[in-house]
Structure formats: structure tokens, C-alpha cells
Write a protein that binds this DNA or RNA. Sequence first.
RNA 1: GGCUGGGUGGCAGAGUGGCUAUGCAGCGGAUUGCAAAUCCGUGGACCUCGGUUCGACUCCGGGCCCAGCCUCCA
Length: 465
Amino acid sequence: MLKVYNSLTRRKEEFVPIEPGKVRMYVCGMTVYDYCHLGHARVLVVFDVIVRHLRSLGYDVTYVRNITDVDDKIIDRALKRGESIQRLTARYIEAMHEDADALGVLRPDFEPRATESMSDIIHMIQALLDKGYAYQADNGDIYYSVSHFEHYGQLSGKQLEDLRSGARVEVDEAKRDPLDFVLWKSAKPGEPAWPSPWGEGRPGWHIECSAMSTECLGAHFDIHGGGMDLKFPHHENEIAQSEAATGEHFVNYWIHNGFVQVDEEKMSKSLGNFFTVREILERYQPEEVRYFILASHYRSPLNYSDDNLDKARAALQRLYTALRDSGAVDAGSVEADQEYVRRFEAAMNDDFNTPEALAVLFELVRAINRARESGSAEVCRLAATLKQLGGRLGLLQADPEAYLRGPHGAGEEGPDDAEIDRLVARRDQARADRDWAEADRIREQLEGLGIVLEDSPGGTRWRRA
RNA sequence: GGCUGGGUGGCAGAGUGGCUAUGCAGCGGAUUGCAAAUCCGUGGACCUCGGUUCGACUCCGGGCCCAGCCUCCA
């Protein structure tokens, strides 16, 4: 039985889909005006694993992840770069896809864009106007009237009064209430604009997600996800918009992932303490980044440091070492060990507890190595189990030797394989001659190049440290 | 100020009302020409103060500390 922590109720709940056997899920994606940083990578990977797990349980999942391709930041950035908005967003959308692909993130089933959803957005705004939840201000902008929505604050646990007294909301003369938020911004010169019943303009940020999710998944769907920082006001506003416009309950389960932190502080653009995915991939393999993300529970903070990435590398080396020479190449055709599968699923069914699931993988590693030492025929089956379960997390699908020998980052320079093989062969000769001094000298030389040797009865092999 | 979430061994990071997390690092042993990899064994933790209980790191309450949201942010 799958249990999910629901941000709306603040407790773990049994997951029951609206329609048996089917899951409809929406995740807030990126605003494309810059490269993905590690925080974006976390959202991508976390929800990718959630989708993979739901599918492994047999659910038919429809996964929607939007792209925000028009907003103030995009407009500013395009202006500064002297580049058209279309060119800018196209570039960053492509970059995002490259990063997501590198990290082993499966593509969502639908990836709607705000600029391609204008009629849905306009229809929803019109519905809100018709029902009295929205009004047009003197400046032409359309606002959502927060006080008209009875349940405003249910997701974030905030009272309207508390929010008002918080008083950090910028006072805008056009608004009737400082907490009202914009649905449609009337066009200013030089800005991109679309025609609407209220004149040329563009949508506010919150309305696009309401419109796109409703369009792709219906007025009522199962899961809505995103980063913690979107809980308020973005998701709160989405609920207000969608439920007011459709009259239906919007989402059953809200899932929010925790932040990536640097030195105990949130990684964010405004603080300038962020690392882009491509920067990190200069020095680490994508799978190591993915492992690093999954080594913490999705709701916990994830502290970025080289030390923690190095630990991810060490962990993957142990996993892949167990898979080496195990006959698990074609793991899918081997029946998995059901006891380990059961424990893995129990961990994942407990609110997607990936650290616990990884612990099961390491217990499999020990079982494999033990079986190997005792010459048991179980090695292949256990290794196949490890590879299958790793696959459910999007890990361990590479050729073990290729992973262990591979360079550690896209930017790494080092000796090529042929050169290493040549040195290893020379050392083998020295060892055959029992010239230990020469053998050790070559080994140290290789060590200096970041190559570790492993002698075994079957011969010497090497990997990158 | 209001609202979330959290404080676990050297580090990272799960979990449980009484029983080994797991990984890295450490220590002892096996193995090895020496290493590496691997195996076996081992030390080490539950912020603080009360309460509930036969028994709490685990449940409840107070305190302290940390992060986040209340403004764009994954």
C-alpha cells in the first residue's frame, strides 16, 4: 500500500487514485530564462522517481510538466541580451532537455507551454470574471479577488488576516486588496502580447498552471507537485483559481520537495549561491548527481557539497563493482529475488523513501559479494535483482566496466584507455618476472594519473578512482 | 510577528515505543608479493527540560537552535 505525505493535510495518507489504476499528475516545471541549477535538477529527478514508482506499481500515469515561457524575467533577460524572447526560451528549453536527459529523467507525457495555452488561459479568466471572483482594475489588469474565495489559505495554513498584517506585499493602487493577484496584465509597449476580451496583454504566472493542468488532466486530478517555495503563493493561488473557475475540488495530493542548500542556506538565484547542472557535470557523472539527490528523502533539505558528491561516487562504485562480471547484463530476463523486491517496494511505498530503498540495494551488494566468494550460483540472480531495482530509481543501467573506467566529468582530461592498457601490460610483465619494484613503480605512476589497479587470479583490471 | 518543516554516531542519512539501518571514514582479522576490491568482526548517536508508560531516541507539552515561506524563486 502506497503512502504519500500530502502537503494539504500535512500527514501521510494512503494513496487512492480518483480513477482505479490511473494517476493524473502535474508538476510545475521551469521558467526558461537560464540554465537549470541543482534545485531544478532535484525537482526533475524526484518526480521522475515518483512517476517510475507509480508505474512499477502498475498505475497508468499521465505526467504533465509545464514550461513557463513568458514572464517578467524572460522579457528582461531577452531585452538585456538583445535577443528575441522566442530565441531565448528555445535555447533554454533545449538546454533543460539536455540536462534532464543526462540525469536520466524520462520525458513527461505532456509538456505544455504558457505561450501555446492562451485560449485555455483566457477561458479560465473569463470564467472567473463571470463568477465574480475576478475584476478588471482601472489600469486594465485583471485581478483575482482573494476575499471571494472561502478556502483561501488552506494549503499554506495561512489566514487572510495574518497575510495582510505580514505587510510585505507591495501595495498596488490598482488592487482592491493587497493580497489580490494578477490574472492578466495589459500590454506595455515593446512587451509580448496576446489579444483578449480585455485588450492586448499577457497572463499572470499563477493562472497558466491552473489552465494547463485543467486542460491536460481535467478539473480534478490526483497529484500536483513542485518545490516547497511554490506552496505559497503559487499553489495556493492555483487552488483558488481552479476551484473557483470549475467549481470542483482541484487536487487530491500535493507533493512538495525540499530545497537544495549550500552552507545551510537555500540555493537560489537571488542569493547567487547556485550551481548549474552543467557546471556540476563538468566534474561528476550524471548518475552520481542523481544518486546524490536520491540519497536524501525528497522532503528533507539536500546540502550541496563536493564531499557529498564524492560520497555518491564512492557509493556508486561499490554498487557497480558488485554488478561487474555478475552475468546481470540482461537482467530483465532473470527472475528477481522477491524478498529484496518486497523490501525495496516497502521502502518506496513509504512516501518514496529512496534512502531506505538504497539501503536495500547495499544489502544486496553484500549478498552478491558473499555469494561470489563462496562460488554460489546465486550471484547472477542477485545481481539481476540489483540491476532491476536500481532501474526503478533510474540507476545502475550502465555497463559496470564502462562506469568504473569512465571519466568523472565531461571536462575531465586524462590518459586514454590504450595508454593505461599499455602500462598495465608492462606491469604484468614485471610481475611475471617477480620484479616487484618495477611493478609497484608503474602502479604508483598510474595512481598519480587517477587510475586504481585491482589484481586478481583472472588478471589485472583498472578503474578510475 | 504569523505559518511550515527539522534537530540521530567523525561525516552523510533512514527508522523504530523494548531487537543491526545503510554508505563513507576508523579499528582488528581474512585474503594479497605489497596493494586494490571483497568478506568477517568491532567502537561510536538519538538538542534540552518535564509528562505519559513496566519501558521513549521513538508519543505529549515547554524551552533552545537551524532551515524555509509570508515578495520573484524548484
